[in-house]
Design a protein around this nucleic acid. Structure first.
Lengths: 339, 339
DNA sequence: AGTAGCCGTGGGAACGCTCCCACTCCCGGG
DNA sequence: CCCGGGAGTGGGAGCGTTCCCACGGCTACT
């Protein structure tokens, strides 16, 4: 294997080989405007021959852009890494950034480093920030924006926020699920809701209520229990529901894991699914395919969420408008055998 | 809120404010050698007052170092993102890199981009490469090294590789599990092994065989079945084992998920765990805490793996020796109620 | 026939840093 | 009393780009 020359070729060398000036070579590589075909061809040949790649540091120095985007995951959310949904989001982000020729700088911000994180972000290295967050009480996005750095948040921090976020349309998704249950002729449609202090919890509940009304079903408080998105809380919630109203014939669970718990309780109670009780989840997690029976659930596309986050960030960077409206991503119902 | 000055302060401004030369200011920020206390203090005050942060691009341009490290996850492994173990590894890497003041550039390399990945890595942006891989048939690490870039692989590609990797000591871990079962007086110790073409599969099986011999237990081929690390394959494997030898009184599963499957089969077959059959897993996945009964398993520390990967990479970068020996990380047995 | 304007071009300047050389002190030894 | 040398310092050069200005040649007007 031939030893490559120790130093990387520079633009100057490319220009020399192509027999043009540095400026022309630069123009070929970038804008491309106002270059004769002959010169362009010569430069492109030289680039290929030398295996030239622009030096990112030199470019960043003069343009004051790094072509890098930070993905910040706060420590409290680090566990999301282990969740398939967020893994999918990260993948979507990675793919979208790669297509846009941007680098993804991953920052796992622990609490200690919180101060220097801001310092780092605002004064260095990246052109924009992607934030993955579940909690609502965070002023970090606005603080970063205050320093002139574009920010897009994945998962709307709270319902009051109208700009700079991408989230799944939880209200619409929950509506889909409930409308489906009503369509199936179910009359006593219960819900195992999520925590009301999380957007995913409150919005899905909101969608449940709306769709119930739209379908002319009465809203009955006794058919509402709250879980914490865990399997156990789903099982417990289902027991409560059966106790309160043995005639319940459908239940919409705010996520799949709670639906799995509900399924267990129903089996233990000798109820057939879907004959006696129909069950619908939310998330379309991998587990929903392997439950018994396979779970009908609201599908949300993590990849799309990642891609949309990047798209919105690039838009923000391009327009300079820090307050671009956020987007809600549509969901769709995946009907399996539990309903 | 006062508007920050449009341009970031430069080293020159810091030096001017401190009343010293650019060289002295630079010396304070970096090496620190040969600077009088008076000058150092003045520069540090000026830095604090101006909120100065060195421009990374300018620094990279002259030092030819970026202080960034790439973490490459090949598409075929992208799913690992959703697995708690790998999420932990990434976390460990992130933490270790942050302490070393290095940036983590995440590259999700899909197959299409495979060529340009190498191009990108070798000619740009990063000082070293971390590779997360499960498959053995990959020449990528060596190709990258051929370009003079340090590489550390997480998860040994295959048993022949002696350098530049960090892995869990699978043989030792499996030995721990089997020795424990032998200690408990079990005589017919079976195993549900993993795929033989994966290091985790073959090494854990190797450890099983070794420990069996060390404990004076006969190796019986009928007590060996192979799974694919999935829950279903564990359940199936256990059925096969019970069929072949109803007197089996212990089973070592090459991962926790298969152990969960085995547990299900045993319950369905009316065997008590651990009274009739003891079960041990590998991984200490979150699920192992919530099985019935809670699973005894081999604990491997993902955080340690990430940190060790970074440590080895930094060592490689510092010494310039591309062929530093790899390391096997010790495991320990977590005894719960299934054995 | 002269000139205004455009296209395509070359190269100086600047980006902000580190490296390194040269310079000034000042101390101690011959 | 002179001189060698170390400690501390200032600032020039250079890293590889992009930006921008000035320039030459050509076309198409007046």
């Amino acid at each position: 294997m031939a030893r490559r020359p120790r130093t990387r070729p520079t633009l100057e060398e490319v220009a020399a080989l192509a027999g043009v000036g540095r400026g022309t070579a630069s123009r070929v590589i970038n804008g491309g405007a106002k270059v004769s075909d002959r010169a362009r061809q010569a430069v492109e040949d030289a680039i290929a021959e030398l295996g030239y790649v622009p030096n990112a540091a030199a470019r960043a120095l003069v343009t004051r852009r790094t072509d890098a985007v930070a993905l910040v995951i706060a420590e409290s959310e680090e566990r999301v890494f282990g969740e398939p949904f967020f893994a999918g989001v990260v993948r979507g982000i990675g793919a979208a950034l790669a297509s846009a020729d941007r680098q993804l700088v991953l920052i796992l911000a622990d609490a200690r480093r919180r101060g220097s994180l801001e310092h780092y972000l605002t004064r260095q290295h990246v052109d924009g920030v992607l934030l993955l967050s579940l909690h609502g009480d965070d002023t970090l996005p606005d603080r970063i924006r205050g320093h002139g750095l574009p920010v897009v948040v994945g998962g709307r921090p709270n319902a009051g926020v109208k700009t700079g976020f991408i989230d799944v349309d939880n209200v619409q998704g929950a509506g889909l699920a409930v409308a489906h249950l009503a369509d199936r002729g179910r009359t006593r449609i219960a819900t195992i809701a999520g925590p009301s202090d999380m957007v995913a919890g409150s919005s899905r509940f909101e969608g449940y209520v709306e769709a119930l009304t739209a379908a002319d079903r009465p809203f009955d408080e006794r058919l509402v229990v709250r879980g914490d998105f865990s399997l156990e809380s789903g099982a417990r919630g289902m027991r409560t529901l059966l106790q309160r109203d043995p005639a319940v014939d459908a239940v919409f669970c705010a996520n799949d894991l709670m639906a799995v718990g509900a399924l267990q309780t129903l089996r233990d109670a000798g109820r057939r699914v879907p004959e006696d009780v129909a069950v619908v989840g939310f998330e379309d997690a991998p587990v929903s395919r392997s439950t018994v029976p396979p779970l009908t659930t609201v599908h949300q596309s993590p990849g799309a969420m990642g891609r949309e986050m990047v798209a919105l960030l690039l838009d923000t960077m391009a327009t300079g408008d820090m307050l671009l409206p956020g987007r809600m991503l549509p969901t769709r119902l995946v009907v399996r055998q539990s309903s």
